[in-house]
Design a protein around this nucleic acid. Structure first.
Lengths: 343, 343
DNA sequence: ATTTTTAATGTAAACCTTTACATTTCTCTC
DNA sequence: GAGAGAAATGTAAAGGTTTACATTAAAAAT
């Protein structure tokens, strides 16, 4: 079973041609004669030859690899984006290497080094932060990097995002329209641009309705179910000051808030309305089904890879780049976790 | 900004040594003198050199890549396994390339070809099927492939699994102990070995309690929430023949069954007990919290990568191989979705 | 029939490493 | 201080491709 792997040389010998001809037969079929092409084909079949991708990539000075930096692959939100990216990438002949950074700057830096060392041809960032090495070199307009999901302020790289501010505004507005005035917000972690934007949208909606926002109605979570439970317990502890509605920055946290609400005997939505964010599959199957902001995850991924491929294709900075970030639309999915304000 | 990337030659020139010395300074530091090592270090810093991994790999005839074949990366069940694998791999200097096969044999074959073409050094299969190319060549005992999650009957490759039969037995037994006798089973798709094993465990439990299993109490799903809803609607439609308990082969399907049960006004667990499988994070936060079989996902991943690294390290077939599959223990987590049989 | 043009193939360099082997430079020892 | 042995470094090949350039063969034009 020590069967040696066939190289292009073996094929050439078998077919009675030079290795150059074999290579051409494979990559520029129109330049070799019909008959030799056939000879090469049979020789390939006979030897079971498959090109050594590493040698090929070395010669072409590429890796065929697109690096995808995600903060947490365990989060189903990211895995859908991924499948959009994957499809586009593999169509264009690229593989997707996933770097799970766990929000660790060191891991981010390690992965970013892949770009320099030719281990990756391009990079898509889902984690809302420029890895240190990139941040130093003023992110130049031609580097093959695309940012998705979280915009990076002051960064000129192509970006595809949703309008978090507006989406959060719409979600909050929905609660206001239902008559709620004591509306809490469970946000993401500090320092995250998503957090900032969504808090801004929330505040803007309150303001537009003439409601003054109370700082203690904003609770910082971390997008997880557990942090949602903690938020719910904190916000609902005091029956006197309790909000009648909660707007959450993730579905997981919305679920957590509902769990906490049920703990203290509150009914959803009769006693408390809850809005989520993302529309993960579980949101629709929860009890009650959760009203939430649907992010077009697949589209986000598709747009990101499209932007990147565009960039890889033409060296000139793409048109997209100058026209600001690509914004994909969100949609408020109204289900049964929200209802009129209890009187 | 057309800054050329520094090669080992640039470093050598800068340091006034040969490229061989530079290479040695990096990989066999003890063999070069203190002073030159320092010269090399400063030269590296000055040039900003990072080794071209592709050239290195070509020379060493390896790729540093471990291919992970999963049926669906969107399933959170797999993403946890992944993080266990990822950790071990990166410690050993490998990257993990994820191949999302979507259960498509063609995609499986494409990915499996990576092994032959040196694009990957090894492979971990989470999808319970040998890709065609491997299946043909009688999976020889030394090929760097490890199977996880789903055993492949008659395949001698190292395997790490849970005892699905036993876990399903325990879950069903739990319902029997609560006094249930009309117990349904919502299984995975046909042809999946998980399905077979879990159905077997279910049947074995019934038999051990002297209950004859009724074929129409077994519903084939596909692990998704939606298929669980369908299962629930089908099984609970007729109030006369309705089971008092349902044992599901995934948490998603358990959630689906509960959704369907609530549709027809059944209370969980007073009117219907439901058991899930996997213990995904959402299981604990559901209403009611779901009794389920916890799979040690991270451990599964860790074991798989350990087995693989063991294999890559020593050419001789590892000890593990002969001692049959590695079985990691599961645990029945009893929550509030199961209760005594209604009288 | 001879030259010119075109098509098909071959030769060899380049991509960037690592490492076996050869060579040089030390450091001892007598 | 010469010779041996050890330590450090250098030279060059190898790894499997792709491709610019050179060469040959065939077809077209004179």
């Amino acid at each position: 079973m020590t069967e040696k792997i066939a190289t292009i040389e073996d094929v050439a010998r078998q077919a009675g041609v030079s290795i150059a001809t074999v290579s051409r037969a494979l990559h520029k079929p129109d330049v070799v004669s019909e008959t030799t092409r056939e000879k090469v084909q049979t020789a390939i079949a006979a030897t079971g030859y498959t090109a050594n991708v590493m040698a090929r990539n070395l010669r072409l000075n590429r890796s065929g690899m697109i690096l995808l930096l995600v903060p947490d692959i365990g989060n189903p939100f990211f895995s859908s984006i991924l499948s959009g990216i994957e499809k586009g990438a593999s169509q264009a002949g690229y593989n997707v290497l996933i770097g799970d950074t766990q929000n660790d700057p060191e891991r981010e830096a390690t992965y970013a080094a892949y770009l320099r060392s030719n281990q990756a041809d391009a990079m898509i960032l889902l984690n809302g932060r420029l890895p240190a090495p990139l941040a130093k070199a003023p992110a130049n307009a031609t580097s093959p990097v695309v940012i998705a999901c979280e915009r990076i302020p002051g960064c000129a790289l192509p970006t595809v995002i949703i309008d978090n501010d507006e989406a959060s505004f719409v979600a909050t507005r929905h609660l206001i329209d239902l008559g709620h005035t004591r509306i809490a917000h469970v946000s993401g972690p500090t320092g995250n641009i998503l957090t900032t934007d969504r808090v801004t949208g929330y505040r803007r909606a309150l303001k537009s309705a003439g409601i003054t926002s109370e700082p203690n109605l904003i609770y910082r979570g971390d997008f997880s179910i557990d942090s949602g439970i903690a938020a719910g317990r904190a916000l609902l502890a005091d029956a006197k000051t309790r909000p009648t509605a909660v707007c959450c920055a993730s579905d997981g946290m919305a679920i957590g808030v509902i769990v906490a609400a049920k703990e203290v005997g509150l009914r959803i939505p009769q006693d408390l309305s809850v809005v989520g964010f993302d529309d993960i599959p579980h949101a629709a199957a929860y009890d009650p089904p959760i009203t939430t902001v649907r992010q077009p995850r697949r589209r986000l991924g598709e747009q990101a890879i499209a932007l990147l491929l565009d960039r890889l294709g033409s060296k000139i900075p793409s048109a997209h780049h100058d026209s600001g970030p690509v914004i994909v639309p969100t949609e408020l999915i109204i289900r049964q976790s929200t209802g009129p304000c209890p009187s």
